[in-house]
Design a protein around this nucleic acid. Sequence first.
RNA 1: CGGAGUAUAGCGCAGCCUGGUAGCGCACCUGCUUCGGGAGCAGGGGGUCGGGUGUUCGAAUCACCCUACUCCGACCA
Length: 449
Amino acid sequence: MRLTRYFLPVLKETPKEAEIISHQLMLRAGLIKQQAAGSYSWLPYGYRVLMKIQRIVEEEQNRSGAIELLMPTLQSADLWRESGRYEAYGKEMLRIRDRHERDMLYGPTNEEMITDIFRTYVKSYKDLPLNLYHIQWKFRDEVRPRFGTMRSREFLMKDAYSFDLDKERAVAAYNRMFVAYLRTYWRMGLTAIPMRAETGPIGGDLSHEFIVLADTGESGVFCHADMLDKPIPSIDTDYDGDLTPIVKDWTSLYAATEDMADMAEYEAAVPAEKRISARGIEVGQTFYFGTKYSAPMKANVAGSDGQEVTVHMGSYGIGLTRIVPAIIEASHDENGIVWPVSVAPFEAVVINLKAGDAETDAACDSLYAEAGAAGIDVLYDDREVAAGGKFATADLIGVPYQLILGPRGLKEGQAEIKHRRTGERETLPIASAVSRLKALIEPQRRDKA
RNA sequence: CGGAGUAUAGCGCAGCCUGGUAGCGCACCUGCUUCGGGAGCAGGGGGUCGGGUGUUCGAAUCACCCUACUCCGACCA
């Protein structure tokens, strides 16, 4: 993508409403524009990150055996009356009336609708287990939206719903999601710790919140320091096999949100030097809630003995629009964002230090073409702007690698690669720059491990 | 929902106290000179001063009402 043909409105100054660093950088680097309280447009650069995150989520959900579909944003109130939540949900649910005076609502979540789909079509235990998910916009009329897309009213969420014959099998489904989540966050370059959590209005008795540690996080958390560097299950994990050992390992050390934490238990379980008491951002949550929705909504299947069985369910959410600021909170410096390669909107940027100079233009044009042909997501800063401005923009928007070429280097046949994260620079022959770049980038995509 | 604040050009701000018809920096446009860490000079465009009502000869400025947004707290992917 040529920057002169792109839409990237960057700001030199920080809009005053932005309080936390991720919100400031998302506005400054042209990722989002606020449209109303808790409502944001995703500008092209931000949308690219969001879509990269979405792809990772989809790949890992699919790998675990979940199946993607898409449900509408507007739902009929009648479904929610069946489960009893139309009255129970409160003012967070945005209620709408259509032209025929029918009660509708903008979905804050989809347990009722997915249960309706399930009960319509699935009649036999032979069709289980089943896990259906979608990635759709949700609306929760938060009392107080804040921190940009970290807590917005309209947000993009992946929500998966599992259906099983009994509790034991439902827990196995829970474990598959648990493992998929560990992989999903790791692929995005995040360290997310599963913590015992309250179940809240969704209900149930088994739940984990996946928490990214950050000072600006909204939840207080307590955990064992060794949770931070546990090995991530690999790409060839057998989701048809028994995942209990992995989940056991990940849940054996103490890790709980403040709502669940018991100080005496915490101090007994974790030696003083291993105690982490910190703030965290919740980037996902998993629930097993048995028959809470399947019973009132009559989601039954025939068991092997021909008798009707009420299915056991779980639901599993990932807030995609929250993950973007979570990544930035975890990965930035004084100059701007530092994207992990796997979610970076562009993996590299070719910086033409003297756009308008015929020879430099020709050399940079061909580097850009070569990088694109090598399968690198590459941005090309071909603006006629002083070098300092280009470096500042490249740093701000956080592209992992800068491939820099100007008349001086051109004369010597040398280009420069700057590593955004470390600041390290390497000078190398122009001819080998792209292959070097590719070698740096490929392993960091984390799509093969 | 309780408490506190803000609203003047795309962004950051001054002007308001003491009323006289709007200004600065950045960004944007034109030209020239520059060009390896947010360049210089010259010229230029852009504002119903959040909205309404009132006071006044005259309101960005004073008064009242409304709206939007932000922050702190209680609640949540």
